[in-house]
Design a protein around this nucleic acid. Structure first.
Lengths: 331, 331
DNA sequence: AAAGAAACAGTAAGCCCTTACATTTTTATG
DNA sequence: CATAAAAATGTAAGGGCTTACTGTTTCTTT
């Protein structure tokens, strides 16, 4: 079942069939209909490999994340995949884990596969660009990063102003009378740095001092966050509110508080499904994946359309605090 | 940068280069090394499209799930993707949503793309096979289903004995003196039916009557589960324990109980990350994705290896109850 | 109705690789 | 060493599609 069969049954040449397949040139309406009908009837579908050979594109985009079982990445992928699919693109997924070498390896695999574009989810992929030798000859394939801001040729970024969000959140807490904010974070990626910067800014604006003893790096697991807070409580370290760079860390902190019979404002970040599941329901800074993801797809389509004529860009969205029980709106 | 370039710099024919590329035939060690070195040096990678054209395979497997933002599917994908990747396969992901027509469409897309195999995650894909006209000419491409049991040519199933798990769980509750078990479930897919069957069996073995009024179908959301339980409580429907077909439903139920100041055993299913996040931490029936997923990949590799010589099979694992605070182990 | 322009359709040359078959080189055997 | 057998390599024919270029219709225009 090839283009030749269709051509034969229609009494036209394969070039004509190819043209109606691609809409690449004018074909008389009557001819086109005849061809289309034949395709329909014979259930013809073009061989993607042959197509790819000719066009050097198979309408595929590669998506990379560190761990799809993490709610943040899963949500992002769930927002991107159907969107791209509806535009006729297939999505190849890669879960790299945290090793930069693996990230590089996956990137190479995607390039070898001649994907049309690559989407990186999460700011940990920013690392790849820190050392340019890590980045393969990426000239041909545009790269789109969700939630990270790097300057690199042919790289397009879509981010959320997390610094601003953390700044405001800190001020909110300060306004509520909380002066000793415990900050739990997992990694100092681009995003991580932004959050910390925002926090400091917020404290400063509220005439509070940042306390390095209350800025603690933990593993991105509930249990580690809980253990750390358990220990702080045991040590009677004084803090009266908690912010975390991730919902899962905030939830761990909550567990520690509950276990200790304590209660204080806890605010997470990412507003993942975990936030609403936890008890008390977690107030969380929403980094607008619902906006970032479609925006990324739009930029991607434009770039692919314009065949790289676009200049690298950064698109920014504003986060918002999604209030739940763990920190109620005051007004 | 093609096979011709390598051939030329090595003074051999493209056939030889191709052979070392594929290990498909004997090549003198010296020649092979020379070719390999040239490839290395010139950073040659074969064009996957041309390769696909010749071999009709691009080492790709398609994975379908209804919603990757759901913890269950996300976990499954996170267990399958790196495994397949390490075997040299790329993974194309499809999130179909619940519409059977969309599932069929995705299946067709995968087939058009000539994937080497297709993995379906979750028993809702069993529906596709209910009406054989839904299933495309699937002769060539083997299909693997995680967590669903259907009999169909060229379909291989890897499942968890959820009926058994629910049976034992019901008996456990009965033994604990709980006689009115509320069962929340989302859909009566294959898996859903197994769970219900197991529940009934467990009740019967415990000399308890199943009560249809306490078997309630809800949406697969926390809020709907909560609302339903809220209403039941308001109506004073008598029940003294809760089992849910999904962690997220169990968590919704817990929320309702907490809100009403009540406490009773709550048991979820899937043992997703949500279970440990919820407060009280949710006891959950673990359906062994950690075992199912690697097993699926193994069967897949065998089938692809044997080029379809394997007969359709069902691989079964036993679930276990992961105890947490919402229902403590009694002994 | 003739001639030139514009629209459409066909021919054939790739795209890069795999592999059956033919040829040459190497090894083994008497 | 000659020669048959085995091993290594080369030749060339696809695999199914796109597209530049050429050839053929059809439509305008006067």
């Amino acid at each position: 079942m090839t283009i030749y069969d269709i051509a034969k049954t229609c009494g036209v040449s394969i070039a004509t069939v190819s043209r109606v397949l691609n809409g690449s040139a004018k074909v008389r309406a009557a001819t086109r209909d005849k061809v289309l009908a034949a395709m329909e009837e014979q259930k013809y579908t073009p061989n993607p490999f042959a197509r790819g050979l000719g066009l050097d594109s198979m309408k595929t985009v590669g998506i990379l994340c560190t761990d799809i079982s993490d709610a943040f990445f899963a949500k992002a992928v769930s927002l991107v995949e159907p969107n791209l699919r509806s535009r006729g693109f297939d999505v190849i997924l890669g879960c790299t884990g945290n090793d930069p070498a693996d990230k590089k390896k996956y990137l190479h695999l995607f390039l070898e596969r001649h994907v049309d574009a690559i989407i990186l989810i999460g700011s940990s992929f920013g690392e790849i660009f820190d050392h340019s030798h890590m980045v393969p000859a990426t000239g041909k394939v545009p790269i789109f990063i969700i939630n990270c801001n790097v300057k690199f040729p042919n790289v397009y970024c879509v981010v959320c102003d997390e610094a601003g969000g953390f700044c405001e959140t800190a001020q909110l807490l300060a306004k509520g009378g909380y002066k000793h904010i415990l900050y739990l974070y997992d990694r100092l990626t681009y995003s991580g740095k932004q959050k910390l910067k925002g926090l400091h800014e917020g404290l400063k604006k509220s005439k509070l001092e940042a306390n390095p003893q209350l800025e603690i790096m933990v593993e991105r697991t509930m249990s580690d966050a809980k253990n750390v807070v358990d220990k702080l409580l045991a040590e009677k370290k004084p803090f009266d509110a908690i912010i975390a760079s991730e919902d899962i860390l905030a939830i761990g902190a909550q567990k520690a508080l509950v276990a200790a019979g304590l209660s204080m404002p806890v605010i997470g970040c990412n507003n993942s499904i975990l936030a609403s599941c936890s008890t008390p329901a977690l107030t969380s800074l929403d980094n607008r994946l619902e906006a970032l993801c479609p925006a990324t797809v739009n930029v991607l389509l434009q770039v692919l359309e314009g065949k790289g004529k676009m200049t690298p860009s950064v698109t920014t969205f504003e986060p918002y605090l999604c209030y739940r029980d763990s920190f109620k709106k005051t007004e």
